[in-house]
Design a protein around this nucleic acid. Structure first.
Lengths: 118, 118
DNA sequence: CTGAATCCTTATGGATACTG
DNA sequence: CAGTATCCATAAGGATTCAG
């Protein structure tokens, strides 16, 4: 048992969720309903097309989501969570719950910095 | 309720744990025993002094850990988890557990890429 | 022992315009 | 509708050296 096994385990897990928009994309797809590209864009008002595409490609590469193209005009593409992706539920839910609990503390911290800068 | 509240919650949570070595530093300090700078270095064989210092400073700033300096020669500094830091337990444990479960899959995926490159 | 300072490379994210 | 293609700015991480 080498000393950095723990580090590798964390690295593997973090790899799957690090990225500004990855957790929330996974979160929405974990609801179960396949979502189209523009549906995701509406759910993430501030994301750019480029970043949405990039993150979806990465999640697909990691087999966390699947991408299904319906060959029709206009194009239709649906993204869904995979079984493997569903295994991330405990992580995503823990993050979501913790964020909900501590968002106010963070906002107070930011406000304090405005008043008493270092 | 604005549409991006979820995004903010994830962002707040991710802020606390994103960083190549943050999860494992928190993980070790969550064991309860205060650790000295060089003890952490031994637990993280591949980290550089600079990165350990930087991450500890960030965790301290976020009030996830505390830093106690014992004014003596040679210097002694101990890092401990705070109550606030302990609230990250569900996230850190979920990451650790998921990584332990899926590390083999990842390694197989890497090996496959060697054989069948894109 | 516990750092700080400097310099450097790469990764990440975004703005904007264009397309089948 | 669902993307690409460029170009750019900043953040993150690392190697190395120096210091109280």
């Amino acid at each position: 048992m080498q000393k950095n096994l723990d580090q590798c385990q964390f690295a593997v897990a973090m790899d799957s969720i690090v990225g500004k928009w990855k957790p929330i994309i996974i979160h929405h797809l974990l609801q179960g309903k396949p979502l189209r590209f523009n549906e995701l864009r509406r759910l993430l008002p501030d994301i750019t097309q480029r970043m949405l595409t990039l993150h979806l490609r990465e999640l697909e590469e990691e087999e966390i989501i699947t991408r299904v193209v319906y060959p029709q005009i206009p194009p239709k593409v649906e993204y869904s969570i995979t079984e493997y992706g569903m295994s991330l539920t405990p992580i995503i839910e823990a993050l979501h719950q913790w964020g909900a609990t501590h968002i106010e503390r963070k906002k107070l911290g930011e406000a304090k910095k405005q008043i008493e800068p270092d």
